[in-house]
Design a protein around this nucleic acid. Structure first.
Lengths: 233, 233
DNA sequence: CAAAGTATTATGTACATACATAATACAATA
DNA sequence: TATTGTATTATGTATGTACATAATACTTTG
């Protein structure tokens, strides 16, 4: 007899997950179809569908019309990680956040930036370099290029009170983006800014964003040594 | 007049997204409730709900019962990144994957591992250290501890044909896990194994997994210099 | 007047039904 | 036999209704 009753999509999900985890359904196996499962569990098909869709999103199941649903051969778990706003990230750790602009000038896009965004090299852009502090210690060095024509009003913002990241996040909504994470040895400049030694391992995030087909920003975030990005799955 | 007709949850999502991106609905704004939107769009409430739930999952909306739905003040976009199987990751880049076991021995958990998993220090564990190659170049150094009692049959597996990661992914399904990403300077050992210079910046993933409350594995993945983890949002 | 209780409201979920769509299997045809 | 067409099937989605739940607003009561 069952200990837990199945009457919600969450419980269907839990039960299906149990069968996968306990290897009642093996990787690659075709699992019963929604109608049969609905009958077995005594719920509506829509409820089973909701649960199965959720598990497919998580990468535990693979579903294809007509072909049916299978336990994923390689249950590629998907971790969702939030792209944080630095101020909040620092404050959440109970530290005091501070921010300083190192440079802010309008100029044309350098080749490397222009090519990355797919823009002509003479596109007018805003270059902002800034440093974020946590409890007066350098936390993050931010090097950002903004496509001026894509973000209305950016030329009138001083970035003294809020930082570019935060302002852009609220004002330059983007429809899609591209992120990569890597490790790099600190350059002399980065080492000095982040109060680290030259060559120290630096966690780097490179992000490019678009609004539809219009490039918005390229930004490189270099974190002070010791930074960890964390998530759960 | 509308160019695109709204008749599916996808189109509702697109339209809501448009209103957010084009700042018709500003960050923090309370948006119309599901019933009203359903009426406006000429679809059922369930359809609106599906669209709105999707956008809330993506971090663009914030929803609370009774309080209603708001455009997220800080549209913290969530990036989903897939936890890859190294062999596939290498092969997808068109390289030839190879794998070598450096060490494989049963012993009790060292303090640092035991404490991380919340296990007593005398728990019998399997320690596997291995190296992944891409086109005969070192790609990833993997240092793994497995809770033997949590994974049936692991002692009978040699890991000659498939690697520990892949075997575990298929055989030691976990219900939850914990991942952190960081940058580290290569130790002498890591440098030698990865054919890098000592101190080179190494991208590191630390992962711990549980099956319910039972700890399964702790693993540290140290990637050869130049590795980038990539995702889209 | 403060605390406790109650009504209201927007989202969350369940269900039955219906039809759409993609992928497969099978039959018919050149 | 290869190809084209057709039936079948499992998932995908839309709808209307109903009730659950959480959070707020309001009212009653001590």
């Amino acid at each position: 007899m069952k200990v837990t009753e199945i009457n919600s999509w969450q419980s269907v999900k839990a039960e299906v997950m149990r069968r996968i985890v306990e290897r009642i359904w093996l990787p690659g196996d075709l699992v019963p179809n929604e109608v049969d499962l609905a009958e077995e569990f005594g719920v509506a098909r829509a409820t089973v569908n909701r649960a199965m869709r959720d598990l497919a999103d998580a990468g535990l199941l693979e579903r294809r019309r007509k072909a049916g649903t299978r336990v994923a051969l390689n249950p590629t778990r998907k971790a969702t990680l939030e792209i944080p706003i630095t101020r909040l990230e620092v404050e959440q750790r109970g530290w005091i956040w501070r921010h300083a602009i190192l440079e802010r000038e309008e100029s044309v896009a350098p080749v490397v930036v222009a090519s990355r965004l797919g823009l002509p090299v003479d596109t007018p852009m805003l270059h902002v370099r800034s440093l974020h502090y946590a409890n007066s210690h350098p936390f993050l060095y931010e090097d950002r290029w903004v496509n001026i024509s894509a973000v209305k009003g950016i030329c009138d913002v001083s970035f003294q009170t809020i930082d570019a990241n935060e302002w852009l996040v609220q004002n330059a909504t983007f429809t899609r983006g591209d992120i990569s994470f890597s490790a790099a040895n600190a350059t002399a400049q980065e080492a000095e800014l982040l109060e680290a030694s030259v060559g120290a391992a630096i966690f780097v995030i490179d992000r490019t964003t678009w609004n539809g087909d219009i490039p918005v920003t390229v930004v490189r975030l270099a974190y002070a040594p010791g930074y960890r990005m964390h998530t759960e799955i």
